[in-house]
């Protein structure tokens, strides 16, 4: 105890002291950054090829220099993909599919999130009779392959008189999004301290007041997550789109397939590339916008009440 003090005043000449130096080219750095570079190249090179090809004329595409930068940049393939490409009888490009997809996307996302969040809240906070059974059935639904239900759903939609319409597809997306979204919301609401819920009940708030005034404002992050999940899922859906709609009401993905896979005439690679990028743009934008919101939402939620 006493002999510590003299040591503290001695200059330290024996061995390391202070911050440990970090070499730039250590094995660890090389492995980590090497892997990261490799993975980003794996994703970015195809994207690069798509973008440059979409900006080339067909003559240049035929030269076969896939990686070369376009000599004269042209936006004609983009215009054609958006407004002129033909699928079947319609020759108004992807614009029709885009409109259909938006028409399907917005109500599907809103409806599924509204219903699922109320479901999750009821399951998490109001222990009603049969809640566990209801939840088990719902989760079981998440594991049934969609193919099994394709035809029965066709019959149901036909009987409801909405087969082949966008409304029908909205209903299908809402129902099929329910298991996973309900699970998501239930788990989040379960993590909200039960005492807050109890305090609100003592304060005289009912089912809806607690949901709208207490639970929802506390749950921005999970709503953002749900929006990301649903927007990308519904926008990228092909199976339901192709089965439950007609050419007039095809969503963008189905139309993209029809443009790219058309067997008549020459393959216009530049138009195909432009069309593909256009179709993928919406989920990409959602990621960029909500990604930031998402992080902010989590940070805001992390402050303990």
């Amino acid at each position: 105890m006493v002999d510590i003090a003299p040591h503290a005043h001695q200059p330290v000449a024996d061995g390391p002291r202070g911050k440990r130096p970090k070499p730039l080219f250590s094995l660890r750095n090389i492995v980590v950054y090497g892997t990261l570079l490799l993975v980003s190249a794996y994703y970015l090179v195809p994207l690069y090829v798509m973008i440059v090809t979409s900006l080339k004329t067909m003559e240049e595409v035929r030269l076969g220099n896939v990686f070369s930068f376009p000599r004269d940049i042209t936006f004609a393939p983009w215009v054609k993909a958006w407004a002129e490409a033909c699928t079947g009888l319609n020759c108004d490009g992807l614009s029709r599919g885009f409109a259909n997809s938006v028409w399907i996307l917005v109500p599907s996302v809103l409806l599924s999130i509204i219903v699922a969040s109320v479901n999750g809240y009821a399951l998490a906070n109001w222990k009603f009779k049969g809640a566990d059974i209801f939840f088990t059935i719902l989760i079981f639904g998440a594991f049934i392959p969609y193919q099994v239900m394709l035809y029965p759903v066709v019959i149901v939609l036909r009987e409801l008189g909405v087969y082949g319409t966008r409304t029908g597809l909205v209903i299908v997306h809402t129902i099929f999004g329910m298991p996973i979204l309900t699970l998501l919301f239930r788990n989040y609401f379960t993590s909200v301290p039960e005492e807050i819920f109890k305090a609100a009940r003592v304060d005289g708030a009912g089912f809806w007041t607690i949901f709208l005034k207490i639970m929802m404002p506390m749950s921005l992050p999970i709503f953002v997550v749900a929006v990301i999940l649903q927007v990308t899922g519904i926008w990228n859906d092909f199976l339901f789109g192709v089965v439950y709609t007609k050419p007039d009401t095809y969503p963008m993905t189905v139309q993209l397939n029809n443009i790219v896979n058309s067997v008549q005439g020459t393959k216009e690679y530049n138009v195909n590339m432009a069309a593909t990028i256009l179709t993928g743009l919406v989920p990409l934008v959602v990621y960029f916008i909500s990604g930031k919101l998402f992080v902010r939402g989590i940070a805001a939620g992390a402050v303990k009440g």
Partner: peptide
Amino acid sequence: GIGMVFQSYALYPQ
């Protein structure tokens, strides 16, 4: 006709 105070305070954070 009761008021209640909880261990974790249970204040509404927002």
